[in-house]
Nucleic acid binder design. Structure first.
Lengths: 337, 337
DNA sequence: CTGAAAGCGCTTACAG
DNA sequence: CTGAAAGCGCTTACAG
């Protein structure tokens, strides 16, 4: 029976500490600490000895003690957008999973900040940082600056953005797809199939995502000398001479599909449809949607890597990371006859 | 300039500690600590004085220090199921949000555990607990026992389950809807509309959710003397004499709807359809689905409350909490003429 | 009702 | 390459 352990009763079990390991290995606690972080100062012989003691005793570090002593939390705060229904977008759960698993790979943890209102969300973000629970943040929404972003910037708190900020792109490290290219490539795919009159369909004309995809669409349409229009989807939705549609995302695509069917158009026989995001909505009902996979897993992984780089290397510049996308061919597009 | 602060440089800023507050308020650090937790031992006068100092200095507690000193993490680990695509089920993001916001209300934090494989997930769960990052867990999947649940139970780690465990229901605190009642009430709604021949449609016959909803369906159908059958949805799906369908969830309902349309049935004119979950999938295309809202927000909130109760009160029994549901009438059911 | 002191389990200059 | 010591910022018996 080991006396020093008598006070380490946690949840009814003895917690093994660095001291126990040190005693067992016949070294000082500071040596054990150095072995834990695999310091090059320590001899291989000692490392082996200490590690043996660690496994024999079943040692695991106490996270709180390490955080307190080192001053580094090794935790990243993940900030969700301040909207009520994050659950309707598979994107968020997907990127959260990816972030969590990448973080684990680098031995860091994550904490999350959510809020129905902007005010609540900001309170959570501030609290996470002021209680020294996180070293910084990955923010899962971009666009125009808000008071949370201002808070982060003015306090020089490390953070990266998933998406593209409307302003200060050179002062913010961010990770995104090339939305303009996404717009162009949709046109290219359709043009290759022989379509000459194409509409861009959206339910919102706000936000960077729409703006850039649409801009890419317009540029490529002009370049190829094709006929285009912009259609806002609402209850009066209908189409004219166009033989193909670029739709802003796959949820909207399902609605467009239904409306088209009502008006007597068959997809892809009468009109082709190409869309974005490759979420589950694209393969529930036929025609399964031809869509661009924006690679959410890599967006998440890159956000962690870039954040860690920002935190540790403290580069004096802020870069944009562009994640490649992939066209998934399914049933909703076909050659124009 | 305050000397004691010179060493508290965190992220380039002075961190205010309990000592700074104590000095400013002219009391001992231990008194400040007691004021923080609003101890009834401290006089109101002192509390006011200390709180004034706290706000003036902008004090926030250091989470790691508090955790280390108190031995309580005030953090709950949330365990997601070990499946690849959690993002296709809006349920998970919804309950995560609800759990996080309820936790915040009780001043506790959350950590998450995800993994593509059961093995990875278990590693994360063990790590969270052995590093003393969490006091216990909320597990977001139920059904048959797995090695994670066995680990939690045999180590007497506090946890609650969202869903109903197949075994040991009296030894596990869990939170769920009454799935059997959900099955019965679907029948009742349909019967009231005059339907006498009803099928239960599912794509999986595994899991508690199916079993209980189906059992409730069967019982109520028998009780009312109606004609029933069980239909497994696949590419050969078709219906016979039935005039109404109970479908296991709303994603499957969209597929069923499509298949019905192909076979020339109109919903709800020819056949009524009632389903479960009230996710976004029910209101994308027409007919909008009549569905049961299972109240995910309350499932999440209750899981936090019950966990905290388990942790603090250490009751010697394990109860089940049944969250009420609500029928959302939309377009997919109608009276049989 | 409040203070002084010990302790939580680590990390990290400093010294040798 | 390793040890001894101080310190991170709290909490909590113990004493008065």
């Amino acid at each position: 029976m080991n006396f020093s352990k008598e006070n380490n009763i946690v949840y009814g079990k003895m917690a093994v500490t660095i001291k126990d390991v040190a005693k067992k290995a016949g070294v000082n606690a500071s040596t054990v600490s150095r072995v834990i972080k695999d310091s090059s100062e320590i001899s291989d012989k000692t490392k082996t000895k200490v590690r043996k003691a660690m496994t024999e005793l079943g040692y695991t570090r106490n996270a709180a003690a390490q955080i307190l002593a080192s001053g580094k939390t090794n935790t990243i705060g993940v900030v969700f957008p301040p909207v009520v229904d994050k659950s309707s977008q598979p994107f968020f759960m997907k990127i959260l999973t990816s972030i969590n698993e990448t973080a684990k790979k680098f031995n860091v943890s994550i904490a999350i900040a959510t809020g129905h209102t902007h005010h609540e969300l900001k309170k959570q973000v501030r609290l996470l940082y002021s209680e020294r629970r996180v070293d910084g943040f990955i923010v899962l929404y971009a666009g125009k600056s808000d008071s949370i972003r201002e808070y982060l910037m003015s306090n020089k708190i490390p953070f990266v953005l998933v998406g593209t900020p409307s302003e200060q792109q050179n002062e913010i490290t961010h990770i995104d797809n090339d939305n303009k290219l996404l717009g162009r490539e949709a046109v290219q795919h359709l043009a290759k199939l022989g379509h000459k009159n194409i509409s861009f369909v959206t339910d919102t004309t706000e936000g960077e995502v729409f703006e850039e995809r649409y801009q890419g669409f317009v540029e490529e349409m002009s370049r190829q000398g094709l006929t285009r229009s912009l259609v806002k989807f609402d209850s009066y939705f209908s189409i004219g001479q166009e033989t193909a549609l670029v739709v802003i995302d796959d949820v909207l695509s399902l609605k467009v599909l239904e409306s088209l069917l009502e008006h007597g158009y068959r997809v892809p026989d009468d009109v082709s449809l190409i869309t974005y995001n490759n979420s589950i909505f694209g393969t529930i009902i036929h025609p399964f949607l031809t869509t661009f996979d924006i690679n959410v897993a890599r967006l998440g992984a890159a956000s962690v890597e870039k954040f860690l780089n920002l935190l540790n290397e403290k580069p004096d510049y802020h870069e944009k990371t562009v994640i490649p996308f992939e066209l998934i061919l399914r049933e909703s597009t076909r050659a124009r006859i």
